[in-house]
Amino acid sequence: MRNFEFFEPTTLAEASRLFAQEHTQLLAGGTDLVIGMKALTEAPQSVISLQKIPGLAGVTTESDNSISVGAMTKVRAVELSADIQQHHTALAEGAAEIGSIQIRNLATIGGNIAHASPAADTVAGLLVADAQVDIASADGERTVSIDELFTGPGQTVLAPGEIITRFRLPSPASGSHYIKHKIREVMDLAFIGVAAAVNLNDGVITDARIGLAAVAPTPIRATEAENLLNGNQLTAELLAQAGEAAAAAASPISDLRCSAEHRSEMVNVLTRRTVQEAVNRA
């Protein structure tokens, strides 16, 4: 690990001002950053901890069941939050897939997202929750939709000095589900991840949302598949069509974990499974 300066600002403004400098990194849970620094794939000159800034952690639920998740909320807290489990089951399930309990007790949801890995386990759940991402900087605040946050692997729309502060999940889904395709039961990275969320109105699907992870340079929504589902009752045929449409939306790569073809096939299979389960739960 290279030498670096360590800052523990107590306000977002101060953190943002420091983070606007070049060769800086934010420290949230450290489960990605510290490993990178040890491996020298990250060699920041300054590390700015967010841990002393009040108000960045925690899950709060409003009377309309909209939920706000602070960026510094531990992944384990997201996993165990009764409100998230109830209203955004896919997000809680995704959180439970990350690393080990020890890792989840350190890692934060903000870090999982800001790291911008297409394979992040909370991202599909946030996509189907239609999460709004609040971003702060010394210049003020702005909000982007989660599906506009990512621009490529490890890349986001965040400008120098901009810090994710919270995720707002505006409307609950009555049924949602996340499945990760993996080899090992726990502590594996997603070969792909699929989340689906629906509401039902008299058996008719509304608000269908499908989020795909690790199948494209950024996490994506499978909007064609969603459109097929919306306004219809779920049938085996419709499910098959939705699976096909989601697979068509994916543009995966082949790598040492598996081939692009396998990833596309699994998008199809897991879309069918997550949608079915989301409808069952709704």
Binding site: R184, E185, V186, D188, L189
Partner: peptide, 16 residues
């Protein structure tokens, strides 16, 4: 070797 670590060289855990 393209998987020189425990991320992509998987050893099972007790959950498997």
């Amino acid at each position: 070797n393209i998987n020189p670590g425990f991320v992509d060289y998987r050893v099972p855990t007790s959950a498997d």
